[in-house]
Amino acid sequence: MSPLAAFFRPNAWRVFRRNMLAWQTYAWSSLAINIVEPFAYFVALGFGLGAYFTVTGYGSLVQFIGPGLLGFTAMNTATFDASWGCFERRVFNGVYESMVTAPVHPLEIAAGEYLWQACRAVMYGLLFLGVLAVFGLGHTFWVLLCPMILALSGIMFAIPALFVSMIVKTQEHLFYYFSFVATPMAMIGGVFFPLDKLPHWALTIAWFTPLYHAVNIFRALVLGRVGPSLLIDAAWIVAAIILLSYLPTRAIRNRLGN
């Protein structure tokens, strides 16, 4: 079974359903936590810092940071649950252990997790999009494409996070991933400041990070400034999902296969 074929297996959707069922028991706290963080950044940076700066080509910092934080939210929500949450489900709660005594293939578990992270990214992303709408952003039909990009981003960020959760020995080691990968990616991904004044090498690095492309698309959709270059960003994301999906297969089989 290929990691992509696993998405179409019924058991992947049953794993997804399991997470949805469990989520319902802590939905309110989870929604609150996942909305407060981007909101805090939005207010503090957009209005606080934004009182002193404007961004060339965008006007206010609110206009720039708001849609960027949509990509940031998708990355955070998928990264956290696919690493911290999956580690918990695998190691502490025996969720996967019971699945593999039933005829669930390890790659079906992975696919179910990716689908669930897509769902989380859509839920929390749309919630934050609502916040942006209250502040006058995203009043365009282009935002209707946001759920699709949120879902793809959720899957894209979930894959490496799940991989890390499969190879670390303790849950604390996940902080290496948060600190060395996720946080720097948020800084260079174009969420908080435009990258066009950075040296060329920094731009090159940014181009190779998934967040950069997600943020490009979200900013264009929310501000209604859509151009053909977005197709490249979208293609980049789809290609990343296809290529990345092979990265954790070995680790997943080692942990859960026979």
Partner: peptide, 13 residues
């Protein structure tokens, strides 16, 4: 049918 040594019951369900 498998009853493994660890219960592996889902605490969230």
């Amino acid at each position: 049918g498998v009853v493994a040594q660890e219960n592996a019951l889902d605490p969230e369900l």
